[in-house]
Structures are given as C-alpha cells and as structure tokens.
Amino acid sequence: MVEYKPQYYPGSSKVAKNRKKYMDPSYKLRKLRTISDDDLVKLMGHRVPGEAYKSVHPPLEEMGEPACPIRELVEPTPGAKAGDRIRYIQFTDSVYFTPLTPYMRAWMGHTRYRGVDIGVLSGRVPLEARERDLEKVAKDLVETEIFDPARCGIRGATVHGHSLRLDENGMMFDALRRFVFDKKTGEVVYVKDQIGVPLDKPISVGKPIKEEELREMTSEYRVDGVPFREDKEMIGFVQRLHMLRTEAGFDPNKVKGI
C-alpha cells in the first residue's frame, strides 16, 4: 500500500498553505484572546448565561431509540444525548484579507468538529449544532487566530458588509452597529448580540489583527494580495477537476489514468 497522509488542500501559494493549515485538525489554532463562557452565550443570544439548556426532545436515554445498528454504533454528541435545541452562530467575513473565506469556514468546520451543520451563503456563514456543542465550537471560532475582531462579524441578521470598504478604524461596515471601535483601548467592543439586541454590558473581543499580519494569515486569494491565477498548482487542480467531471459525464469508462 502506498504511504498515505491526509493532504487537505492543493496549491503552492501562501494562501493555499494557510488553507491547508486551518483545515488540518492536527494543527492547533493559535489562541489570541479569551472570551468568557458567559460573554459568548450573551453574544449568541440563545439563552441567558446560567439558564438551563432548553430541549427539543427528551434525553436519548429516557426516550429510547429505534433498533438501528448505526445508532448503536455512532456516539451521539453531548448536546444530542441531552436533546438540546439546534442553535447557530453566524459570521460575516470581510473580503479584505480576513483569516477565513466563507468556504473555508465550512471546510475547516467539517474537518475539525463533529455533528455540525454549516452553510455558506454570499455574505454569511451559519454554523448550526446542538446548543451545548455549539458553545464549544463557537469558543474556538471566536478566540483563535481565525477570527479578526475588526473584519469578522458575529451577525445573526442584517449581515451586509462583507464587500464594503473598511471604515477609518479598519472596521467592516455593520448596519446594526453591533460592534464599535474603542479608540481609548484600541479594542473592538460588541454592544449588541448577534441579532442586534443591545447588551447590558459591552463585551470586548480584543484588538484588531494588524494588516501586515492578516496578509500573512489570510486564506483569501486577492488580486492585490496573492492572486488566484498566480497559484499555478491550484489553477491546475481546478482545471483538472473540471475536465474530469465533464469527461466522466460523457463516458466514465474512458477516464483512465488521467
């Protein structure tokens, strides 16, 4: 058997390497800030900190499950076991050198976390999971290097802003003004939760990452950064895949050794 090691992502550019790094679950994401559990719960706005998890069905042990070999085999997540509701955290990522592109959120989310439901839309990426599982995942998503306080937004609704110019403080536009730049501390502060409901106390998510650092960390191809077309290996990968899909649709038996 050929020695096989998961490779996650093709491409020779810096951006491709960053993509590969974030998607590889053996790479530990750098923690850049600490957000308390209670603050995170407040930011998402699904329950009040300390409040018991609401459930959508009884705990699995109580309700009993149908006789199914797959249910017997597959260990439910803690949230599923308890019958938690399914809740979400949603992000908007600016087109200006944020650590993750929308698609990267899905690829990375599925290689790192179990039992998650991620969708990619034009300007927003929701991640849904059982509530207590979601809180665990959300911690990673907000506390580590894949989140830039100024250019990533935690936005449940009115997500618009990913493709607009940054303001004078380098902040992504937010029609609901959920986050503000505190000039005194140099930190980004959330004054509303992800839906836009005002918070009792502002929550700081730390200082924005510097532009030059972001340019090193980003997984976005950009003409004024690392252009997609300059990553020949990546372009070759996409073109080959397109060719194989098309050839296979014509006659799968003719696709041999190419």
């Binding site: 996650y8 439910p76 949230g79 599923a80 399914i86 899905a106 599925h110 039992g115």
Partner: peptide, 25 residues
C-alpha cells in the same frame, strides 16, 4: 454527521462538503 447530532438537517451540508473535501484530498 447526522448520526452524532441525531439530526436530519445536517445532510445537505454533508452533500456539499464531503464532496469538496474528497475532491481536494
């Protein structure tokens, strides 16, 4: 994915990203 979450709604996400991941792999 749907088994660990005991939830059916995850399946479309599986359809897109399993294929993306295996194609990139």
């Amino acid at each position: 994915t749907c088994g660990s979450a005991r939830s059916m709604q995850h399946c479309p996400s599986v359809f897109i990203y399993f294929n993306d991941l295996i194609e990139r792999e």
